[in-house]
């Protein structure tokens, strides 16, 4: 309940509200009362005449009130039907105009940027030159991008893996259907189970034969991409995504009964945490040496060999495992709310 001002009765808003409700202002009422008293005292003989007059006045008041109510109800209807549609149009037009304005501004800016593909652009500065000319000697990685993200900027990549892991945990918290406290499955859980059974494969021969052929190849290719991350295009993120896709294909072809034999929630926990802990420990030595990037205790080795480039192949494997587990976890959580 809103607080009412002490002078509400005499304020213009109070008078307006009173007028809207009764069709006359408080001042009018007071005047009428006064007139009534006056007429009672002095105009007794013309009482009858006065009563008919009052009757007419009352009728007029009534008619005015009805007119007003009709007007207000039509206004209300306008606001809820045509008015909201009009607002919708105003919103659409305003947002299109705003977007076109933003696009025009961005296009103008992009057109005035340094020319595309020019070697003299300011982005191609001494940092990238250092990475290209010294990268292989300092990190041992043939793939300069892998050397950059897993050696020079390894903390950035650790944060990235953590972002992925935290996203998986958030999705788990939001979507996992936990059993109730006494261990019985909740109705929501049973509904999800029943729903998921519709998608369980019913001996889909074509998909299963294709999966028999493709899943080993996909997993092998994923492992190849992860292991060769430092000597060819690829790395932990792309290889992990490929392996996760292979696992999802296997799940779609053969169902949860088969995948639960080797991949459960516990596997996800252990593999992700071990990989992240290995990554954090192997890069933590920079913290304990005052964050000076000391030369790695692992020698860079011969560039181009499978086990070269110091820690980079092992870090690639850790990142690949985290990405693979996270992709698979996203899929299973979105599909049935559990692993």
């Amino acid at each position: 309940m809103a607080k009412i001002r002490p002078d509400y009765e005499t304020s213009w808003f109070g008078r307006l509200m009173h007028w809207l409700e009764n069709g006359s202002t408080a001042l009018d009422d007071a005047m009428t009362d006064e007139m009534d008293a006056h007429s009672r005292d002095h105009l007794v003989d013309s009482e009858h005449h006065h009563a008919t007059q009052e009757h007419a006045l009352e009728e007029r008041r009534h008619a005015a009130l009805e007119r007003e109510q009709r007007m207000y109800s039509s206004l209300h209807q306008w606001a809820s039907t045509k008015g909201s549609r009009l607002m919708r149009w105003v919103y659409i037009v305003a947002s299109v105009v705003m977007c076109v304005g933003i696009i025009a501004l961005l296009l103008n800016t992009a057109a005035n940027l340094p020319p595309y593909g020019d070697p003299d652009n300011p982005v191609n500065n001494e940092v990238s030159a250092h990475y290209i000319t010294q990268g292989q000697a300092e990190t041992g990685a043939v793939n300069i991008v892998a050397g950059m993200i897993l050696d020079y900027r390894a903390f950035d990549t650790l944060g990235e893996s953590n972002v992925l892991f935290i996203a998986a945990v958030t999705v788990l918290v939001l979507l996992r259907l936990a059993p109730s406290r006494d261990g019985k499955p909740t109705t929501e859980m049973l509904e999800a189970e029943a729903d998921d059974r519709l998608y369980e494969p019913k001996h889909d021969m074509i998909l299963q034969h294709q999966a028999n052929l493709l899943v080993p190849l996909i997993l092998l290719f994923g492992i190849y991409v992860v292991m060769n991350g430092h000597i060819s295009p690829g790395g932990g993120f792309s290889g992990g995504a490929i392996m996760g896709a292979g696992l999802i294909l296997y799940l779609n072809a053969f169902g949860f009964r088969k995948t639960e034999r080797f991949f459960t929630f516990r596997t996800f926990q252990i593999v992700s945490l071990m990989a992240l802990a290995f990554y954090a420990c192997s890069k933590a030595y920079s913290f304990f040496t005052g964050a000076n990037h000391l030369p790695s205790i692992f020698s860079p080795g011969t560039p181009g060999m499978l086990f070269s480039a110091g820690l980079i192949p092992y870090l690639n494997i850790a990142v690949g495992l985290v990405v693979c587990c996270t992709m698979y976890a996203f899929y299973t959580l979105f599909r049935k709310g559990d692993m």
Partner: peptide, 25 residues
Amino acid sequence: APIVVDGVQTVEAYINPIPAGLVLT
């Protein structure tokens, strides 16, 4: 692409590797 081929390590041979790492993130 910034992958060293045949030991060529001159700036004139490869594109800028930094945006690739940023896009990965």
